[in-house]
């Protein structure tokens, strides 16, 4: 890992996580550099969420090493983890919106509670509003999560993830359970987040077309929406990792993904819209 450490944002080295003696992650290794995107594919139950939560220090690894922002965080204390997490944004699979708090308070939560991110009240209100504008939900400040649709809740989750302007963004199954149109809207927001904020992005999904969209589109600031990226692939590098029952069975580019011989990997590519 030496030499690449300055650019490395997130790296797993032979990470193993066990639940009840069953390895849910089995010697998982990969590396993600600053500005890159990672598409993490895998069937339900393959360990995608567990991988993401170990990267956040929410689940402790039973073996191996985890590197964040170029530092070995395997042995980090909970207090050190709070500081690390302040540099990351996350959208949880189940949303994780606090249903006792209004949308405004939900989005303001990380700014209020992360010590390293405290800011004056006016500044906070401005950032919350900006963040909600970003996901086109500026009018919902006073509402509660239960009053919003599933797609809107996802968008609030994205607003909460980006409000801290994190260096690393983690999205857990952002399009799961959404209709195709809403799913495309969410993906467009994720692309916008990646291109406008230049954040390193990890997206967990079981839908190959999410990854495809991430690779093939970019956000055009002058037009204000996503457009197909140049064919030569000058945009940010996206790489693909495929998980199967806790093991990495593929790690490579989209082109390699599309020509993969492995049946399990090829199945993701073949799966229709």
């Amino acid at each position: 890992m030496a030499g690449t450490q300055d650019r490395s944002i997130l790296a797993f080295d032979e990470v193993t996580v066990r639940f009840d003696d069953r390895a849910v992650l089995d010697r998982v290794s990969f590396e993600l550099h600053r500005g890159e995107s990672l598409v993490l594919l895998g069937e339900a139950g393959s360990g995608k969420t567990v991988l993401l939560k170990s990267a956040l220090g929410l689940i402790k690894a039973d073996g191996g090493r985890i590197y964040l922002f170029g530092e070995d965080v395997t042995k980090a204390t909970e207090q050190q983890w709070y500081d690390l997490r302040a540099r990351m944004g996350v959208l949880f699979q189940e949303g994780g919106l606090f249903d006792s708090l209004s949308i405004e308070d939900n989005v303001a939560y990380p700014l209020l509670n992360q010590e390293t991110l405290r800011c004056p009240e006016e500044e906070m209100a401005r950032r919350v509003e900006q963040s909600l504008e970003f996901v086109e939900l500026g009018h919902t400040l006073e509402k509660f999560p239960s009053e919003l649709s599933g797609g809107m809740r996802r968008r609030v989750g994205i607003a909460r993830a980006i409000v801290t302007e994190p260096e690393l963004l983690l999205y857990d199954s952002p399009t799961a359970g959404l209709d195709p149109i809403t799913a495309a809207t969410i993906m467009a927001l994720i692309i916008k987040g990646r291109d406008v904020r230049r954040a390193t992005t990890v997206i967990v999904t079981h839908r190959y077309q999410d990854g495809e969209m991430l690779t093939r589109y970019r956000h055009d600031a002058s037009l204000g929406h996503v457009v197909p990226a140049a064919a030569n692939g000058s945009g940010p590098r996206t790489h693909y990792v495929v998980l199967r029952e806790g093991r990495i069975v593929f790690d490579g580019s989209q082109a390699e993904m599309e020509t993969a011989a492995d049946e399990y990997v090829a199945n993701f590519v073949r799966r229709p819209g």
């Binding site: 939560k53 956040l56 929410l58 909970e78 709070y82 997490r85 302040a86 990351m88 996350v90 949880f92 699979q93 189940e94 949303g95 994780g96 919106l97 606090f98 249903d99 939560y109 990380p110 509670n113 992360q114 010590e115 991110l117 909460r160």
Partner: peptide, 15 residues
């Protein structure tokens, strides 16, 4: 816990 609000708390800076 099942809606990941507890994970979110830890991720967003509260114990």
């Amino acid at each position: 816990k099942v809606t990941e609000q507890i994970d979110a708390m830890r991720a967003l800076g509260t114990d």
